[in-house]
Amino acid sequence: MTTPAATEAPLLQVGAITKTFGGFTALDNISVDIRQGERFGLIGPNGSGKTTLINCISGALRPQAGSVIFRGEDITLLPPHLRARRGIARSFQIPRPFKSMTVLENLMVGLDFAATGSRQPEEEAAMSILTRMGLAAKADAPSNTLSQVELRKMELARAMAVRPKLLISDEAMAGLSSSEVDEVLDLLISLGEEDITIIMIEHIMQAVMRFSERVMCLDAGKIIALGAPDEVMANKRVQEAYLGT
């Protein structure tokens, strides 16, 4: 583990993860490596196991078998908050704001508990993230008054407050208009440019194509394709999974 090549090792190694719920196999022996700085797209029909996979990565669920290795450290058994402190942040498919707090306070939670080693005063740090996300004007708004797109942005901003090395975006564009989709997509791409590795789950294909360097497609808990976006889209099994047979 002390080799100088440690920086070239994958940021995240998912090793043969299996997750079952009762008799239902949600993830079946999934292995994938995510490289440092990569923009990774995760697609698949509903119920294919996308959210289960990122729940296993972020710690919300514990797989029955397999391992999750992050920056060379086995984090399979760590609770989510310790993963957040190591730099894994996520947004949720259905936004889960801290609804009794203002937007700014939502970010302060991450800065208080997960962000380490920042010398910037917290409120300043929170404001600068909000400014980047185009939410500065809403800093003092109660989070339960936000519009759908603002909520999505706030979730990403809150994830950014964790100072992540890996950001997982779970359908952050669902239910948005096409101009709003572009807005959020531009944000994600610009975050990717600052050396944050991003896993994006998305149903909107143009967004996935534009965003991803690599795409993985899940179906019924198995990987059916993994590679460059256009290759994956051209894959017959992917088309079958999406269009139905």
Partner: peptide, 20 residues
């Protein structure tokens, strides 16, 4: 602040670094 966060949403709090 951590307690308030976990009162609002325990999973989101955990994923934001709160040792719930």
């Amino acid at each position: 602040r951590g307690l308030q966060a976990l009162r609002d949403d325990e999973l989101a709090a955990e994923c934001t670094g709160v040792p719930t």
